[in-house]
């Protein structure tokens, strides 16, 4: 092999790597496929089959894999963080609708939305530690920063439940409002925010006992959160209203900006440079790209049917111990 061809091959590998690092994954939940999008060209590069009814995805604690919950086939599908290619399948994970790792990386939790249970696994080897059956459609999950408690919204019964990770037992289960979905723990570890899809805003919860400490009107069908990355601001999708709100959580909660995103906006992720917010538009089969600074839609990309989870592939993703809370909807916090 000549030096020239070796150089060409090396260049190809480097550019290929760069191109893949530039990619974004989107789960087409009603198509059993995932789209790989290019951030730079804002196009769909390819669409590949994956399980059945994939909804959410999460970065592994070592930062090397992205795990997709394939709800109807009871398994996790692992993709390479750099290339987006399939690596392995983790079987016997029942109905992994929403999923997350505790901040210390020791626990892996899934909300089995249709089967009405919350599963707590030892993250090392995905060994089931405890399965807690609970009525009401377990929907979204969040952890405290100490990795002691996992919080789960129960969309049908309008409640929020807290489970002790070490003992896999229920700590409390309280009503919070109509159809709670997205839940996020703020960095101070003292406030939980819960989005109420059956109402027009969010509530602030005391994680110690689940008591409601405040509320904020954002828009009809408040659904899911995504951190802006400054530890203070959070994006919130309002599905019925067709709006993404920007919420300031410092001191008193307030809406400091919004952008119209029609088509049932749902999951979000931010580009590594923090400049763009990518939002799945479930009904329009598209992903909207929002300029974070101006809060204007600057692009759209066509994807498959009912796009749900979205994730930025990163070539150098790493996870540090004690990193912020991460669950499927907030995977982007791990940079």
């Amino acid at each position: 092999m000549t030096r020239l061809s070796i150089a060409a091959l090396a260049l190809l590998l480097v550019t290929s790597e760069a191109a893949r690092a530039d990619s974004v994954l989107v789960l087409n939940s009603e198509e059993a496929s995932y789209s790989i999008l290019s951030r730079s060209t804002r196009t769909e590069v390819t669409r590949l089959p994956v399980g059945r009814e994939p909804h959410h995805l999460i970065l592994s604690p070592d930062g090397k894999e992205v795990l997709i919950g394939s709800t109807a086939t009871n398994e996790l599908l692992s993709l390479d963080i750099k290339t987006g290619e399939r690596k392995r399948v983790v079987k016997d994970i029942l109905d992994p609708y929403h999923l997350g790792f505790s901040p210390d990386g020791k626990w892996f939790v899934t909300a089995a939305y249709r089967l009405d249970h919350v599963d707590i696994y030892h993250a090392d080897g995905f060994r089931l530690a405890g399965r807690i059956f609970i009525d009401g459609l377990p929907s979204h999950i969040a952890f405290d920063t100490q990795s002691k408690t996992v919080f789960v919204t129960l969309q049908q019964s309008g409640r929020l439940a807290a489970f002790d990770l070490a003992t896999q037992t229920l700590k409390w289960n309280v009503p919070v409002g109509n159809a709670p979905a997205g839940v996020v723990m703020l960095p101070d570890d003292k406030r939980l925010l819960v989005a109420l899809t059956g109402e027009d805003g969010i509530v602030q919860i005391d994680p110690r006992d689940g008591s409601v400490k405040g509320s904020l009107q954002t828009g009809k069908g408040a659904h899911n959160f995504f951190p802006k990355g400054d530890g203070r601001h959070y994006f919130l999708s309002n599905r019925v209203e067709g709006v993404v709100s920007l919420i300031d959580t410092k001191d008193e909660l307030k809406v400091v900006g919004s952008v119209r995103i029609p088509g049932g906006p749902d999951c979000m992720d931010i580009t590594p440079d923090g400049r763009e917010l990518w939002v799945t538009q479930r009904f329009l089969r598209r992903v909207a790209i929002v300029d974070v600074e101006t809060l204007k839609v600057v692009g759209n990309i066509h994807v498959g049917k009912s796009p749900h989870g979205v994730f930025m592939l990163k070539s150098t993703a790493t996870v540090t111990a004690g990193a912020p809370v991460r669950a499927a909807s907030t995977a982007g916090e791990i940079k």
Binding site: L137, Q155, Q156, N178, A179, T197, G198, K220, G221, R239, V240, G242, P262, G263, G264, F283
Partner: peptide, 17 residues
């Protein structure tokens, strides 16, 4: 979004969204 979703939301039928 114009005809169905507001009705479902109004009557608390978001499970049928």
């Amino acid at each position: 979004e114009t005809l169905v979703s507001p009705v479902l939301f109004h009557f608390g039928l978001m499970a049928w969204y």
